[in-house]
Design a protein around this nucleic acid. Structure first.
Lengths: 204, 204, 204, 204
DNA sequence: CATGAATGAGGTTTCATTCAT
DNA sequence: AATGAATGAAACCTCATTCAT
């Protein structure tokens, strides 16, 4: 009994905030940020409504905390080491990383994006911490390959933004219309095809 | 005097609904659907709050009416005649049409997309009436060109969805971060570069 | 054509107010006074909403006008001539008259009674013009028969009020629960049994 | 001090719902259900408007809760033990119980009845839980006494309904017109006279 | 007389946040 | 730290009534 209660206690110390976050993530994904009430979160997390405000100053801060978790995930999906990889593998890896982020966090991403549209500081956080790093990595790779003569001299930064935009657009569309835009077979396959198009276009 | 007052009357009859719609479009664009109140719309439109509900049964119907206008605009931007056009011109025209839709209605589109995430019937309307027609046109063109041997045998429907997704993603990103994703020079130029990438990729 | 239009015109002069009244009676009966809107009345009566207020200063006055019609009906059901009738016939006729009033106007009566509960001047009108005359007629008859030694020396005015109350209570209950309190066979039969009870009670 | 504050807390916890109910009962009685606003209830109960909705999901549920209290009262007034009582005492007791219900709760009863006219589920609740039990008790007693030859062979269920209807009708009328229908002397006296009429009628 | 668009006060209900316990 | 009752501003929507045509 002593053990059990200690165990329970040890867990609850840091778990309560985590539980709130997990429940909030699910509810925001299902219903959106504005239509999810703090009462819903509290009830499903098994805590009192007031408890949420011990861990997070405002409801918006719950979303911000989810954003922070997303940023961490985002970094994990950002390519670090490209040495010795083929062009195809590098591009594929970058695209795949971003698609994975979407497939693993589409719910939260949907909720964040919806808020981001009308919340500038949230937008800025998203742009600098989530899309920013991916843009940088990809940008420097393309520029390097252009210098080496492997890639056409198109506007590199445009190509990057177009590709990041494509991932976001496909992510959004496939979470709205899984039937039409869904990544039917696998994310790897999806990434492959995007890589093909990115590198070779559709012309023969 | 008689003329003037008739004029005023005639105008006000059909104008009030339009005014409400225009004001709502602006406010939804600035603040989003949920954070725009019917009182705000009424005040800025110079009508009583109740007047809104003479023209639109619910606040959501104001958004739906905006959607209908968007659908009409969308059709205008959908290519009808491709006979005799070069591949480049066809693709460019399709992409340009969609980009124009975004640049002319990005505010309303943002508001609609944010709601669409958590409103299935709105999502369905958007998919069947706005993205659907564009997908069809582009799809049949690519398939035809593949049969004629001009395009590589990649998955046509994937290529289409990727491109539509790209337009949407770029539209979203440029309305969130005009500095980074904005269509700096001109939409035509932007469409040109997207067309280039679509047709030829980045590989030399 | 001239005839027809005259006909139509002649009718419409007094008919519009009547139509409004008829429609209102039906809607008040179905939905109650407060939950019936002037728009509903106007729509179903085939007139503009404003037209109602040409014929009746306020919505409440529509109910008052229905009350007036009811008062006229009520008088028709009030016995005038009792000479030569048996005790049973007199009592039966009085009770029958009130039951008829209920069965013919139960809808409006329900609506009026519901408002009467919380509208003193409506209540007074009802009491003095609808229940009042019936009470008087019955009261003087009973008093006369008591003097003649035919009826027991119970409190006459109490007996009258109890009977009028009984009619009202049964009217209300049968309009709420036709299955349980409904006048299954016929009103005449119902009146007969009430007369029996009134005169002879249940004791053997 | 500690005691006092605990006391205050303990009280306020369970009292608030009760206070709301009491205030609502009074206001509904005075002004009817529809014309009583939640703001009025809140103000007079000394709570915030939102507090009402912690205790009752909707305004209608406040009325339903009042109905529940009435049902409990109603059962208290329903006769259980008739063994060894004279006919007169049994009938008197039943009638008295119902009259007491009216005299103690006439305000709420008025409000409920007015709503019941146009709210079927409220009507059903009232019929099954308030009038139903009274009907059953009375019905079985009369039937028994008919078998024993003490009562005339009139339609027992009719006699019961007529009497219940009478109580309701008199209850309504005396709350509308206390001067004319009021139970001047005492409820016991009123019940006595109703009993007399029920048993012996007016005929000598 | 007739219309019906317009009004705007007011209705019920929601919900993030606070704070005494 | 945790609770959850309480707050009260504000949301969307309704509707009897008016009035210019």
């Amino acid at each position: 009994m002593a053990y059990k209660s200690q165990e329970k206690h040890r867990r609850s110390i840091s778990d309560k905030g985590q539980t709130i976050l997990e429940v909030a993530a699910r509810l925001f994904a299902e219903r959106g940020f504005e239509r999810t009430t703090t009462k819903m979160i509290a009830t499903e997390a098994g805590v009192a409504e007031g408890t949420i405000f011990i861990y997070f100053p405002t409801k918006r801060d719950v979303l911000m905390a989810l954003m922070e978790k997303l940023i961490l995930q985002s970094l994990k999906h950002t390519l670090e080491e490209t040495e010795g990889m083929s062009d195809r593998d590098v591009i594929h890896a970058i695209i795949l990383g971003r698609l994975r982020l979407w497939s693993e966090h589409s719910g939260v991403l949907k909720a964040i994006i919806a808020q981001m549209f009308f919340d500038n500081s949230l937008a800025e956080l998203f742009l600098t911490r989530v899309t920013g790093p991916a843009i940088e990595v990809m940008n420097s790779f393309i520029t390097k390959r252009q210098h080496e003569g492997a890639f056409r001299e198109i506007d590199a930064s445009f190509a990057v933004r177009a590709t990041i935009g494509q991932v976001i657009g496909l992510g959004i569309m496939s979470s709205i219309a899984p039937g039409t835009f869904g990544m039917e077979k696998s994310i790897e396959d999806y990434a492959s095809r995007m890589t093909d198009m990115f590198l070779g276009g559709v012309w023969r």
